[in-house]
């Protein structure tokens, strides 16, 4: 079971990106396992608020989604998430699991828990989405949160670059690189179709 753990601040575009990554995985790999009707991709949605929206968007695309609601907004049901992941493995044993964390979560802390308590995980990648349009504002208002979300990411996707000029994008990239210089970095606009090569690199990346 290969796990892609998506993090990033509220409104950064995680769901839009997950839709594209899911399509890439579904097209590149069979959506159903060969010998059963079990999906080979399952998405776990950890949302804030009683009315789940992201899960409905993903379900409307025909994707298999498990929801986790409520709880603490920051650590976001860390234990429940691991239990859910283990249940998915036992019931469906999919090839891919995508986890969308809340916009206030620290993905690396969730990754630590999953690594420690998750079962049957072949690979785990932490993918953090950064909002290019709001980077300057957010890094002034809540620098600690942004830094901790990004600092241990394996892959960083700087989204909404269509809202910035090229030199502004370079400035944001430099700022992000100061926080995490080890991660794979891609500047994208999920508003449009992203080059599938980026998804290929992201899902097959290994350190």
């Amino acid at each position: 079971m290969n796990v892609l753990l998506f993090g990033g601040f509220l409104g950064s575009g995680k769901t839009s990106i997950i839709l594209q990554v899911a399509r890439y995985l579904v097209e590149g790999f069979s959506t159903r396992q060969l010998d059963s009707d079990k999906p080979s991709l399952v998405i776990i949605e950890n949302e804030v608020g009683e009315a789940g929206i992201d899960d409905k968007i993903l379900k409307a695309e025909g994707l298999s989604v498990r929801e986790l609601f409520a709880g603490c907004i920051c650590c976001t049901l860390n234990a429940e998430l691991t239990v859910c992941l283990n249940e998915i493995r036992e019931e469906l044993s999919p090839q891919w699991v995508i986890i969308e964390t809340t916009g206030m979560a620290f993905p690396h802390k969730i990754a630590e828990t999953i690594t420690k308590f998750g079962k049957g995980i072949d690979s785990l990648k932490t993918i953090v989405v950064a909002d290019a349009e709001r980077w300057d504002d957010l890094s002034m208002i809540m620098p600690g949160l942004l830094e901790e979300q990004i600092v241990k990411a394996n892959i960083i996707l700087l989204n909404k670059i269509d809202c910035l000029e090229p030199e502004q994008i370079s400035d944001v990239e430099e700022s992000i690189r100061r926080i995490n210089s080890n991660a794979l970095f891609y500047a994208i606009s999920a508003h449009d179709e992203v080059d599938p090569q980026i998804w290929r690199m992201a899902v097959t990346y290994s350190e």
Binding site: E50, A70, A79, F106
Partner: peptide, 23 residues
């Protein structure tokens, strides 16, 4: 309903919670 019983499952953020309207 949410508790942190194991050290590895604890929360360590220091941000203020936002207001949420969800219906």
């Amino acid at each position: 309903e949410h508790s942190h019983q194991q050290p590895s499952l604890e929360c360590s953020t220091k941000h203020s919670d936002p207001a949420i309207f969800s219906e």
